[in-house]
Write a protein that binds this DNA or RNA. Structure first.
Lengths: 151, 151
DNA sequence: CCGGAATAGTTGCACACGCAAGTTGTTGTT
DNA sequence: AACAACAACTTGCGTGTGCAACTATTCCGG
């Protein structure tokens, strides 16, 4: 059986990243109560805002959740319509806006957090155990190496 | 500064997976010659077919590229229109079809492969070095743990 | 201070995808 | 043999996203 170029093991490594990512995401999103009460994308927006003291500039938030600025505009449209965030005009730079976490948004985030943490516990801490920090280190190296010239 | 529930480090670990995945994919897809000559999704379809001897049932291929069967139907529609694959009716089960790699598809895959392998070399082997097998092992454990109850 | 380049965000448009329903073919039960 | 349950795609429809174009504002060089 001839060794064809598409059998290169490096492609398999990369494929594993795609497969693991997708498998985990499907499990997270497919979880009964989890995605239903708060879509993953909404969750991450609320999370990033909470971690930044409740507000963030649109462009900065877009970068953090890895969306184009137009993608974020519409996402915030939807979340704002649900009352979980608000837009506030930036006074020093009248072009810009902040996305601001509302009390309702913060409540919902608090309420949704345990389910997400449980899911992570089951999906990554479970199978990896003490190796979790190793994975985190490897992934961080990948990200830091790739990110510089992105967007 | 109060320790809020959203500062849980496990969420950061999971976030690192999302960030690394996205950063790598953007780099791959954004690469000048790479995505232009052959979109990532097309590339993976052609790759999976080549690795399976040139043909695969639609449902099986859908699972391998992590798409719904309807998603794969349309993807194959497009790739078939470009002449890189063909559909062949399955004779033992006349409901089913095979996606079959055409000579042109195989040629294009062969031609696109070096650029992809170079990209992986630069984006994962570069920053990780000898730790690549460690990453692959960890990701495989994640995938195998998550996959069972999926789709 | 004025005019052109750059920046923050939004909108028009196209597109790829998932879900649910539909079509055709197979399998199992009696 | 007939009919029901099931399976392999495919199609209708809605939705989330990126790219390019647009508007409003700020920055910078002369």
């Amino acid at each position: 059986m001839a060794k064809e170029p598409w059998d290169d093991p490096r492609i398999t490594t990369f494929g594993m990243l795609l497969e693991a990512h997708d498998a985990l995401l499907c499990q997270m999103a497919g979880l009964p109560g989890l995605d239903a009460q708060l879509p993953m994308t909404w969750f991450e927006v609320l999370l990033r805002l909470a971690r930044s003291g409740g507000e963030l500039r649109m462009a900065e938030l877009a970068a953090q959740v890895r969306l184009s600025t137009s993608g974020l505009t519409r996402l915030i449209d939807r979340i704002e319509a649900a009352g979980l965030v608000e837009r506030r005009h930036c006074t020093e730079d009248r072009r810009g806006s902040f996305a601001v976490l509302t009390p309702g948004g913060q409540d919902l985030l608090r309420q949704a957090l345990p389910a997400h943490i449980d899911a992570i516990e089951r999906l990554v801490v479970g199978p990896l155990g003490d190796d979790v920090p190793v994975l985190e280190d490897l992934l961080r190296r990948l990200r830091d190496n790739a990110h510089p010239a992105s967007h």
